[in-house]
């Protein structure tokens, strides 16, 4: 089975790179500012975005950037698309906010709209909801970006479940620091082979993450 990458988006050091094209933003910007700017640059109109925590905003924007003009969603039925993600900090960035809200007995005010984001796989849910994607899900937590694991799990999902394509990637948000690589992978059947996408392999993945 041949698997190809049809599109990708990298977000690192407040820079947005889509399929090799980079849109650099000022380095001193806060994560919140960068995410708001990226939302505008991508021309999104999705009010739900503003309710999300940083991790979900990051994952959603990177996915949107990779999906735009990719033809990915048109090539696959929505129940045959899986979403596979991993990171290092799980949902700790939002966990700390929730913990803060319950640290003081006098100011004890946990917020449901914060608590709901204290699970890393909510980012998968947000992407699934935006596009009505209903295939397989999996969220892994790793010591660092691990090309071996990403490839292995991507292969397993495509080979051993019903999906024909996977939105895959690394989405980490920790202490205001963002690190994301989202890439779209597809089983190269005859029609997709004609599109001349690059085969998914460890070397390519390492190169994209650099």
């Amino acid at each position: 089975m041949e698997i190809v990458i049809s599109s990708y988006c990298r977000i690192k050091n407040n820079a947005l790179i889509v399929n090799g094209k980079s849109i650099q933003l000022a380095k001193q910007d806060s994560a919140a500012f960068f995410l708001a700017e990226t939302y505008k640059i991508l021309g999104l109109n999705y009010p739900k975005f503003h309710k999300m925590d940083g991790l979900c905003k990051l994952g959603l924007l990177a996915t949107e950037a990779a999906l735009q003009n990719s033809g990915f969603l048109e090539r696959h039925t929505l129940d045959k698309i899986g979403i596979l993600m991993a990171n290092k900090a799980s949902s700790l960035e939002t966990d700390r906010v929730h913990q803060q809200s319950i640290s003081d007995k006098e100011k004890y005010l946990p917020s449901p709209s914060v608590f709901v984001y204290t699970l890393p796989n909510i980012v998968i849910g947000e992407i699934a909801i935006k596009h009505k994607i209903t295939g397989e899900n999996a969220f892994f937590v790793e010591p660092s970006f691990n090309t071996n694991l990403m490839l292995q799990q991507n292969n397993l999902m495509l080979k051993q479940s019903e999906v024909s394509a996977v939105i895959s990637g690394w989405v980490d948000f920790d202490n205001g620091h963002m690190d994301a690589l989202i890439y779209l992978t597809e089983i190269a059947d005859d029609s997709i082979k004609k599109l001349n996408f690059k085969p998914l392999n460890e070397e390519l993945l390492k190169q994209l993450y650099q």
Partner: peptide, 11 residues
């Protein structure tokens, strides 16, 4: 075994 998403609401 299999997994699937509702793609409906996060909570």
């Amino acid at each position: 075994g299999a997994s699937a998403n509702d793609a409906n609401h996060i909570s």
